[in-house]
């Protein structure tokens, strides 16, 4: 099997089979990174360009390590340091990277559609590492991988995504990804942070967290950005924490086997309390760890070139 497109732009265009194929490929990758010497020669000689127009620590590091463990050459381009600040267009940046010999571009960009635009410009793979409030597909793939590890299957599970749905690419990709894998998805947040028509992506909408948590198998907590309060989208962090903060007490409303997830970075005491973030049910650390394995799988499947018969384990 191969992936249909040359790129990974969004969960929207992926089939359940393609998603599962990536998750299955990530399993041997995880084995590789659990070894004392975490390096295979699979992508030796290939160049992965990490192009980040937005600050990011974990996604960027995760992609960088994924490339390194596969022996690819990595090059980092940041929005402020490059010709971007001299007014170069996104398309020209893409063409420049092509001319410099990049084999894959990992793109993080504040504007929706940027990854698709870059993908149309270059003949080699582009991986969307977050385009504005649109999609963040590798985040959702690592989330699915983590849930499959913990729960065995995703089918039939009930997931509730809590927080700032409006500005979250993690929420959009997550809704699509968990729906495709057979879960029931709800979103919960204040009316001012739930965008219109989110139901059409397949999510049920709640404004009351206690109702949303009832029987949930997965509680997916989103980061709340303080700037949103300054924009007047909700009255304050104190009230937000009271209405939408996840704590140990609230966890009791969910299924007794429920897991707590968060894409990071965590605002402790705002969207989640320490006792909930660090409890046995939390898989937040596992998510970060799995992120590297899943991104190795994505890089491998997109950048290996040609058809390979099996996943390399050495």
């Amino acid at each position: 099997m191969t992936l249909r497109g040359k790129d990974l732009i969004g969960i929207e265009h992926m089939s359940e089979m393609e998603i599962q194929y990536i998750l299955d490929t990530a399993r041997p990758m995880k084995e590789i990174i659990s070894r004392p010497i975490k390096k295979v020669p699979t992508l030796k000689g290939r160049t992965v360009a990490n192009v980040f127009y937005e600050p990011s620590t974990r996604t960027r590091t995760s992609f960088e390590l994924a490339a390194k463990y596969l022996s690819a050459e990595g090059v980092n381009v940041s929005g402020s340091a490059s010709s971007v600040s001299k007014g170069e267009s996104l398309k020209d940046t893409a063409r420049t990277l092509e001319a410099l010999g990049a084999d894959v571009i990992i793109l993080r960009h504040p504007m929706p559609g940027a990854a698709a635009m870059m993908a149309q410009t270059v003949p080699f793979p582009v991986v969307n590492a977050g385009d504005g409030a649109h999609e963040h597909p590798t985040q959702s793939l690592l989330d699915l991988f983590t849930v499959q590890e913990v729960k065995g299957t995703i089918k039939g599970l009930q997931i509730v995504v809590v927080g700032d749905i409006m500005h979250s690419r993690v929420a959009r990709s997550g809704i699509l990804a968990f729906k495709k894998m057979g879960a029931r998805v709800s979103v919960c947040g204040p009316t001012t942070l739930v965008p219109p028509g989110i139901e059409e992506l397949g999510a049920r909408v709640y404004n009351n967290l206690d109702e949303a948590l009832d029987g949930a198998d997965i509680i997916y907590v989103l980061r709340i950005q303080k700037e949103r309060q300054e924009e007047g989208l909700f009255p304050g962090l104190r009230e937000y924490a009271r209405l939408y903060g996840i704590n140990k007490e609230r966890l009791k409303l969910a299924s007794s086997e429920a897991v707590v997830m968060h894409p990071g970075p965590v605002n402790r005491g705002v969207e989640i309390t320490c006792d909930a973030a660090d409890c046995k049910q939390s898989v937040i650390q596992a998510q970060v760890n799995n992120g590297v394995a899943v991104r190795m799988a994505v890089l491998y499947l997109l950048a290996r070139g040609g058809e390979a018969s099996s996943v390399p384990v050495d």
Partner: peptide
């Protein structure tokens, strides 16, 4: 336009 499509595309409505 703000609506289901802007939401799906992540564009401001």
């Amino acid at each position: 336009h703000e609506g289901a499509v802007s939401t799906a595309l992540g564009l401001k409505g």
